[in-house]
Simulated assay, not measured.
Amino acid sequence: MRESIHRLTREHFRDGRMRPSLLDQIQGAAQPDRTGGAAPSSTELKIPVDVGAISLYQDIERVARDDHWRLFKTDQATLAEVIQAFDDVITADELPEWPDHLGRNTDAWAEQIHSYLNPTKPPRRLNRPCPACGQRLHGPDREIALTLYCYADDGTMLKWDQWSVECRGCSARWESDRLEWLSKVLAE
């Protein structure tokens, strides 16, 4: 919980460099004139606000201020100060249920902000019938059955020999040594 509070409210070291607090990062993402990561051009329209970032910030603020009020009977503080005050509850013997509750919340908030600001690329769906079972669509929602896993957890593309394909219908799986055969079968 202390690490999450620190990441949420203070500048911190991550991925080899100093980063602003997660609250500052999500507030910055919500500001007008953000171009969505693309290089600005003279013809590009600016995104007025990032509604998702605003919504996430407001959800965190609502729960944090509610918990802070129930603990301290005050709400006269910034959101960062509200969350930093939760650090004092960790050692409070008279509040035995609060440390776990606050720990779950602060850990979840840090992860939600990080995930929002650094989305991972989803696996690719292959709209072809599975060579093992013949299914193209699977399940009650009729989702595409074959899934290509070609991205690492950090969003970078894996090398070809690390890719895999899985059928959600029959659980057949093809990895590096069988992908060349699979690509030929799917191309027919």
Rank of each mutant, 00 (worst) to 15 (best):
E11R: 06
I83G: 03
M1S: 08
P99S: 01
L56Y: 05
L95M: 10
L45G: 13
R173W: 10
E61V: 00
S183Y: 13
P131D: 00
P119H: 01
W181R: 09
E166A: 11
L79I: 10
P99N: 04
D15A: 14
I113Y: 03
L79W: 12
N127E: 10
P99F: 02
I5L: 09
E143N: 15
L137N: 07
W69K: 08
L186T: 12
R104L: 11
D161W: 09
A145N: 05
A77E: 13
Q31P: 02
R10F: 06
V82D: 06
G155H: 05
H12D: 00
T147E: 07
Q112I: 03
Y57V: 00
K73Q: 14
L186S: 14
R10L: 01
A64V: 03
P20Q: 08
R124L: 11
C130D: 09
W160H: 13
L146A: 01
A110L: 02
E44H: 14
K184V: 12
G37V: 08
I26T: 02
E175R: 04
I90G: 06
T78W: 11
L95T: 11
P129T: 05
S171E: 13
Q58H: 10
R65S: 07
A110H: 02
N127W: 05
L45A: 14
R128N: 13
I5E: 00
S4R: 01
C133S: 10
P119K: 03
Y57G: 01
S41M: 11
A110N: 04
A132P: 06
L22T: 02
K159W: 06
L148E: 09
R65T: 05
Q31H: 13
L56V: 01
Q112Y: 08
D154T: 09
W181K: 11
S164T: 05
E44I: 14
L23K: 08
E188D: 12
L22Q: 03
G28C: 04
V185I: 12
L137V: 10
D107C: 01
Q27A: 15
T35R: 12
S41C: 07
Q76A: 13
A53K: 00
H12F: 08
Q162E: 15
E94C: 04
T106Y: 05
A85S: 15
K73E: 15
I144G: 06
S42E: 11
I144T: 15
Y116A: 12
H138A: 15
Y151M: 07
P48S: 09
V51P: 01
T35K: 13
V51K: 12
S176A: 14
R173E: 12
I83V: 12
W181Y: 13
D75S: 10
L71E: 11
A110T: 00
D15L: 10
L95K: 07
V49Y: 06
P122Y: 03
T35C: 13
D50S: 06
P129R: 02
F72E: 08
H6N: 15
P131L: 01
V89L: 04
A145F: 05
R178A: 07
R62P: 04
A152H: 14
A77F: 00
C133Q: 00
V63P: 03
A64L: 00
L137F: 06
A64Y: 04
H6A: 13
E143R: 15
P96S: 05
